[in-house]
Design a protein around this nucleic acid. Structure first.
Length: 864
RNA sequence: GCCCGGAUGGUGAAAUCGGCAGACACAGCGGACUUAAAAUCCGCAGACCUUAACCGGUCGUGGGGGUUCAAGUCCCCCUCCGGGCACCA
């Protein structure tokens, strides 16, 4: 009894063992290779400038270390990794780094929730995510890893900030800033989406008057804009978004003198005139009022002298605020208040009423406009509501019966001025130039350019960010008033974050509550000083991290200029489109600043940008709230990293959204099993004596397919990146190999051919499925690392089909397909088509009026 | 409102230069193997009509028009979906 049981057990074990032989087991293969790769720090390291190879900088956007890799990351990194591995195999010196965008609010929130210090929480997450990335088999050079929350990185934020301060590019000013009550900090304009916080979609941003640090991105407005024209390696969509964001607008400033005296206590500006900004100075004879933003200095001056007006303006601002809070941003009904005062139109001397209106933006242009209801949609709507006069001064041509024109008439390209004094009859576009010149000559105006882009507010009232390296000298010293700003000397860097800080929900900068941080001495006079307690926006960190990768360990400079010169620009940057106007515009700005500081020579950070599509599930973006998140860990556990990342590339072209279907991952896993089984089955072919067997039909067919596959994948890598069709092509090849199994078994296919097919197949698979490729490469006795083995080259002669199947159409309809030798003369193809039984039946009794013959493609017989 | 994308079988998709629409997969169905199931392998598979079956035919790439011997692909108009911008003077 006992012995039989034992023998049963034995046989079962033996079956399992033998079944496992030749079976694809990612759970064994992947950890084995991962351990070897992790142990070899130099495996994916880039070579120096003198490598003699062409360089290729392949970069994926660095993640925020939330602690969990999500499918969006998997897709992003699978794309970058395939490209990096391919470029290695093509003989490039590849830089493929990874790092962590490690400062930011979630760490503070976690601190509040779990009482874990932000630094510890962040570093733990980083370790977990690095592990996940390694488990994915991503080919990063970890020796260049950058972690933005560590002093050896952020000290260079501080260093560059000081350089910017010296250059006048960093400055402090008091202004209305966006305040997110949820984040308890201010936000840059770019971080406000539809009036709400970019991190808290339902939290309405408040406006607060605060003194903040700004970076003068507007100095580069024009360069940031015109540079886009040359950036043909970037998606047009992103370029358009940036153009819109920069919002360049050519126009004219015109001074309207205020009729009567304007008194205001404490106001410094010139209140005797209102300067309006207009892009349509040609319509100025149609101006019937001047409209001021409620915040305009002249409006305030009027209000100061008129309590009723002041109350109404106050009410206007209240309405606006209420509308914002109700979420009706952008859809506020137009309201206005007549001030009872008048301004003088300098072009015709006419007195027009001055109004205060809620549709005038204080922070665009001059906060004041001339209202031309006949030729502007908004002014027209406003004039209708308040029954203001509408005066036509533009028409398609001088003879048009202007009274019959539908208003507002906003055309300008093919229009002329009417009833406009000496300008009557002029074309609009020309009149704009001439009238601006006229205004300049007479001293009441000037041509100008305005931008929507505003300087970048970088102060954050948070703990977990880069300390701003500035102090305020309490007593002041020569040339500095008490409380004045003093930059720290370079030798004082880094200004490190104090480790023990109580994170609370209360407002104000947490650093302000750490006396040992705040209290310091003035580096100039040695007197008592207070440190700046705000920290930098985390977008500062990500604006230049990719330079640091080239020289991550440098402790005397942010990076070596020489190294940057070698590696830049980034050859391929890959990431989500959601950063189109945040990270990607800041990075461009930072590059220009560093260029002007002499650190680098390139004008733009990245030659090519690729924005991948989202990963969705059941048609919706994966999110915790929808409960449709698929965990990469689970997929890897079930199907392996190779199948998971390969599915991410196979299910859709990379620029489109990708629907995650687990069955699809299982399918890829089955495919890899087939590859594995076949490669192992024929592995002896690689060591067998090279028989002199002559090539067979079956062998030729296999080689033809093989070389066609090489050609297709090679081409796709350099062009469209349709990895889905690359993988489909490999599947077709494997299908063909599988159906040739009998021919390979019988020896009909020469051993050398079998060996070539499988060796090449493993190489073709390497960029997409690195683990199984490495395993199979070792199994077939491949030398060295598979992904440093030269990429196979397609032989056109072998790939060429010997026979062509030519579809034959009659009157454009497919009737038959004829086989002819490849490259046949037109006459031969035509004769074959006319000799085809189905074709004969179809054209019987009719005459062929015309024959269209596209060589190698088709024959179309037009018959009557 | 303006500017970009997109719409192809039951599903994800392919068709790169105007030339056989649906490659490659997923799900499904049928078969082989198995005591059985799983796994694996082989096969079928756009819709409709016709047929006992084969054969054969018609329609078909969001809708409508056009250009062409030939249109998923080019042109004009429209619908729907996704994204961006939006009182920017």
């Amino acid at each position: 009894m006992r012995s039989s049981l034992q023998s049963d057990d034995m046989s079962e074990i033996l079956i399992n063992e033998s079944e496992r032989q030749g079976r694809y087991t990612p759970a064994e293969i992947e950890p084995k290779w991962q351990a070897r790769w992790d142990a070899d720090g130099a495996l994916y390291a880039a070579e120096g400038h003198d490598s003699g190879k062409p360089k290729f900088y392949c970069l994926e956007m660095l993640p925020y270390p939330s602690g969990q890799l999500h499918m969006g990351h998997v897709r992003n990194y699978a794309i970058g990794d395939a490209l990096a591995r391919f470029m290695w195999m093509r003989g490039y010196n590849v830089l493929h780094p990874m790092g962590w965008d490690a400062f930011g609010l979630p760490a503070e929130n976690a601190a509040l929730k779990n009482n874990t210090p932000p630094r510890e929480w962040t570093l733990t997450n980083i370790a977990a995510m690095r592990k996940q990335m390694q488990r994915m088999g991503l080919s990063y050079d970890w020796s260049t890893e950058v972690t933005t929350c560590l002093p050896d990185y952020y000290r260079w934020n501080q260093w560059i900030f000081l350089k910017m301060f010296e250059a006048g590019l960093a400055y402090r000013k008091k202004s209305k800033v966006n305040w997110c009550p949820e984040c308890q900090t201010v936000l840059a304009n770019e971080q406000v989406i539809d009036g709400c916080c970019w991190r808290h979609e339902d939290t309405i941003v408040e406006l607060r008057d605060l003194t903040q640090w700004f970076l003068r991105i507007t100095k580069y407005s024009d360069e940031l804009l015109t540079g886009l024209d040359k950036m043909d390696g970037w998606p047009e969509k992103v370029r358009t978004m940036q153009r819109n964001w920069i919002g360049r607008s050519e126009g004219t400033l015109v001074d309207f003198a205020v009729d009567g005296e304007v008194k205001a206590e404490g106001s410094t500006g010139d209140l005797a005139k209102i300067t309006v900004f207009t892009t349509r100075v040609d319509t100025i004879f149609g101006a019937t009022s001047v409209q001021l933003a409620p915040e305009h200095a002249v409006a305030k001056a009027f209000a100061a002298a008129d309590a009723s007006l002041a109350a109404q303006i106050e009410e206007l601002l209240e309405q606006q605020k209420r509308a914002r809070e109700a979420g009706d941003v952008g859809a506020i009904e137009k309201h206005g208040i007549p001030t009872g005062r008048f301004a003088v139109n300098p072009f015709n001397g006419e007195r027009v009423p001055i109004w205060v209106a809620n549709y005038i933006l204080a922070d665009y242009g001059t906060g004041a406009i001339m209202s031309v209801p006949a030729h502007d949609e908004r002014d027209f709507e406003f004039a209708q509501k308040y029954s203001l006069p509408v005066r036509r001064v533009i028409a398609p041509n001088v003879d048009t019966d202007a009274a019959g024109l539908e208003l507002p008439y906003t055309g300008e390209a093919e229009a002329v001025l009417i009833d406009s004094g000496q300008w009557t009859g002029e074309a609009c576009l020309e009149a704009q130039q001439k009238m601006a010149a006229f205004a300049a000559e007479k001293g009441f105006g000037t041509a100008t350019v305005t931008y929507r882009l505003k300087d970048w507010g970088v102060s954050r009232q948070r703990y977990w960010g880069t300390p701003i390296p500035m102090v305020y000298c309490q007593q002041g010293h020569e040339g500095l008033e008490p409380g004045g700003v003093v930059p720290l000397p370079e030798s004082a860097l880094p200004v490190e974050l104090p480790p023990q800080v109580e994170i609370t929900q209360q407002g104000g900068s947490p650093l302000g509550r750490v006396p040992e941080f705040v209290n310091t001495v003035c580096p100039v006079c040695g007197g008592p000083a207070r440190r700046e307690t705000d920290t930098m926006d985390t977008f500062v960190d990500s604006s230049w991290y990719f330079y640091r990768y080239t020289d991550a360990k440098n402790s005397t400079a942010p990076f070596s200029s020489e190294k940057a010169k070698y590696w830049f620009p980034i050859d391929q940057y890959i990431g989500g489109v959601e950063h189109a106007i945040l990270h990607l515009i800041y990075s461009r700005f930072w590059t220009k600043v560093m260029r002007d500081l002499g650190l680098i020579q390139n004008d733009e950070p990245a030659a090519r940008l690729f924005t991948q599509g989202m990963v969705v599930k059941d048609g919706a973006k994966m999110s915790k709230s929808r409960g449709n998140v698929v965990s990469p860990d689970l997929m890897i556990e079930r199907y392996g990293a190779d199948a998971t990342r390969m599915y991410a590339l196979f299910a859709a072209p990379p620029d489109r959204d990708l629907e995650w279907q687990e069955e699809g991952v299982a399918g890829i896993s089955r495919f890899l099993s087939r590859v594995y089984r076949l490669t192992i089955k024929y592995k002896d072919a690689h060591t067998a004596a090279n028989t002199l067997a002559s090539q067979s039909v079956a062998g030729e067919k296999l080689l033809r397919k093989l070389h066609q596959t090489i050609a297709k994948i090679t081409q796709d890598f350099s062009g469209r990146w349709h990895f889905n069709t690359c993988i489909a092509a490999i599947m077709e090849l494997v299908n063909e190999v599988q159906s040739a199994e009998a021919a390979m078994d019988s020896g009909e296919v020469p051993t050398a051919t079998v060996a070539e097919v499988f060796r090449t197949l493993v190489l073709l698979l390497a960029p997409f499925a690195p683990f199984v490729s490495a395993e199979l490469w070792a199994e077939i006795g491949g030398q060295g690392q598979v992904f440093r083995t030269p990429w196979p080259v397609a032989d056109e002669a072998i790939a060429r089909e010997s026979e062509a199947e030519i579809p034959v159409q009659v009157n454009g309809k497919l009737v038959s397909v004829v086989k002819v030798p490849a490259g046949s003369e037109d006459a031969v193809v035509k004769a074959a088509a006319l000799a085809d039984a189905k074709v004969i039946a179809r054209i019987e009794g009719k005459t062929v009026a015309k024959t269209i013959l596209v060589p190698g493609k088709l024959v179309n017989l037009v018959v009557k």
